[in-house]
Computed example of a mutant assay.
Amino acid sequence: MTGTVPTLQDYFRHLRMVETANELPALLRNAEKHSWTYLEFLEEILTYEMKRREEKNIEKRLKRAKFPYYKTLDEFKISEQQSLSLRQIQQLRELNWLEQQFNLILLGPPGVGKTHIAIGMGLEAIQKGFKVSFYTMGDLINLLKTQEYLRKSQLQLKTILQADLVIIDDLMYMAMDQREANMFFHLVNDLYERSSIILTSNKGPEQWGELMGDKGITTAILDRLLHRVEVIHLNGESYRIKNRTTIFEAESVQT
């Protein structure tokens, strides 16, 4: 039995082992170089295929998540945030709350790291095989308002509903009319006990009713969001202000 390398590559592609097919010449060279046994060679092929498939799945999940940027939890400067400990960060990154479909609400003034933590949690979830969607509240409301007539909005909403974790950034940064609040309620209701939600806001739940304008809808939304939730209060000086760059030199300019 004398198959050529291109023929073997075609066999692997037929079996949908595309990554192995592309890498086969290099794998064969390594097998010869290191005198692998048949079992070692077979293990190397399967390990390589599984690793590359998982890497590509992570790439797909990252693309679908629509993060505005990537910031990991390791990059979060815990020393500058006195209201959250390293131990708490480690507990959160274990994602037990996500597996139990708990929600997280990150509250605090602008610039204290709410979005950074939310994105960091999202990245951890993606690495562990979960599907994530990230939207600002403004983009989400626009999506809900256009779903009736835009195919793109319908597809994006479908992705949100299929996610294990939905991150909504800047919740309640602006007031909603009754129609918008009603659409937001239906989304929260659809996600209830099916997905976890991370919300970031500079206003506490007790203030949300003022911005939704409908006490009944606000109560219904809070009932679902707060049923299983961890509320984290962040405080301190804005990182963006504290670590800002300047166009001026360190020494003051003398006039």
Results as ranks from 00 to 15, higher is better:
Phe67Asp: 05
Tyr69Lys: 05
Lys71Arg: 10
Lys71Trp: 08
Leu73Trp: 03
Asp74Gly: 05
Glu75Ile: 13
Glu75Ser: 13
Glu75Lys: 15
Glu75Trp: 07
Lys77Leu: 15
Ile78Gly: 01
Ile78Arg: 02
Gln82Met: 15
Gln82Phe: 15
Leu84Ala: 08
Ser85Glu: 09
Gln88Trp: 06
Gln88Ile: 09
Gln90His: 10
Gln90Met: 05
Arg93Gly: 11
Glu94Ala: 06
Leu95Glu: 06
Leu95Arg: 12
Asn96Lys: 10
Trp97Thr: 00
Leu98Thr: 07
Leu98Ser: 02
Glu99Tyr: 06
Glu99Ser: 11
Gln101Cys: 14
Asn103Lys: 01
Leu107Ala: 15
Gly108Cys: 14
Gly108Lys: 04
Pro109Cys: 06
Pro109Leu: 12
Pro110His: 12
Val112Ser: 01
Lys114Val: 02
Thr115Trp: 12
Thr115Ser: 01
Met121Thr: 01
Met121Asn: 01
Gly122Met: 05
Glu124Gly: 07
Ala125Tyr: 03
Ala125Lys: 01
Ile126Asp: 00
Ile126Cys: 00
Gly129Pro: 01
Phe130Gly: 00
Lys131Ala: 03
Lys131Val: 12
Val132Ile: 11
Ser133Ile: 05
Ser133Thr: 04
Ser133Ala: 01
Tyr135Met: 05
Tyr135Glu: 02
Thr136Tyr: 07
Gly138Arg: 12
Gly138Trp: 07
Gly138Cys: 05
Leu140Gly: 08
Ile141Asp: 01
Ile141Pro: 03
Leu143Phe: 02
Leu144Met: 04
Leu144Ser: 02
Leu144Val: 05
Lys145Cys: 04
Thr146Ala: 11
Thr146Ser: 13
Gln147His: 13
Tyr149Met: 00
Leu150Pro: 07
Arg151Lys: 08
Arg151Pro: 13
Lys152Met: 13
Gln154Val: 08
Leu157Asp: 09
Lys158Met: 14
Lys158Arg: 11
Thr159Glu: 15
Thr159His: 13
Ile160Gln: 02
Leu161His: 10
Gln162Arg: 09
Leu165Phe: 15
Ile167Thr: 05
Asp169Gln: 00
Asp169Ser: 05
Met172Asp: 10
Tyr173Met: 06
Tyr173Cys: 07
Met174Glu: 02
Ala175Lys: 10
Met176Glu: 02
Glu180Gln: 07
Ala181Lys: 04
Phe184Gly: 00
Phe185Asn: 11
Phe185Tyr: 15
Phe185Ser: 13
Leu187Thr: 03
Val188Arg: 00
Asp190Phe: 11
Leu191Gln: 04
Leu191Trp: 04
